[in-house]
């Protein structure tokens, strides 16, 4: 099994964290992983993209050029993801911010209203965790069952109180995608 995912959004949406948590969980589940980020110099609002690969085999190119799955967190990322996604690939769209339909008919589109789900849980910042849950549900590549202990090392102690909400967001995303 090899799952190559391209994640794209704007800076501040947690795209980089989402990619890191995805490969961190995969590594703890015994998979080979690679994470390569691209982001602008801006603190917020610039581009934020990550190419991530999880595999049962040794990973060849760390560059994700023809992904099996793509995550579209904002409007600007849609054309880019649509352009590179593999035929029959799955596109997970944050339908709270992306109101346009992809033109391609040879891909599977799964719409998740990430921002709305996150806001219901109390903060739009959980939107990336909602999408992470959806990605796990749709691809089955990473189970995310070790997310809780990973979040404990990922977040500094002062932020541990947010862990239950993050887990809840992940589960809500999985449910929305099922």
């Amino acid at each position: 099994m090899t799952e190559k995912t391209f994640m794209a959004g704007f800076g501040g949406q947690g795209v980089i964290s989402m990619g890191q948590l995805w490969v961190y969980c995969a590594m703890k589940e015994g998979l080979e992983v690679t994470f390569f980020p691209f982001y602008g110099a801006e603190k917020r609002g610039g581009i934020a993209r990550a190419g991530v690969i999880v595999s049962t085999e040794e990973i060849a190119s760390p560059l994700v050029t023809s992904p099996d799955s793509a995550i579209v967190m904002n409007m600007d990322s849609l054309p880019l993801c649509e352009n590179i996604l593999k035929k029959d690939g799955v596109m997970l769209v944050n339908s709270s911010l992306v109101k346009v339909e992809p033109e391609r008919k040879d891909i599977r589109v799964v719409k998740i209203p990430c921002n709305e789900i996150a806001e219901k849980l109390g903060d739009v910042k959980f939107a990336n965790m909602v999408m992470l849950g959806a990605l796990s549900q749709v691809t089955g590549a990473v189970k995310l069952d070790k997310l809780e202990p990973i979040l404990k090392t990922f977040f500094s102690e002062s932020k541990h109180r947010f862990i239950p909400k993050n887990l809840e967001a992940m589960e809500a995303g999985a449910k929305a995608a099922s």
Partner: peptide, 9 residues
Amino acid sequence: GMIGQMMEG
């Protein structure tokens, strides 16, 4: 730069 910037196990 790729080896330096990417994350792996």
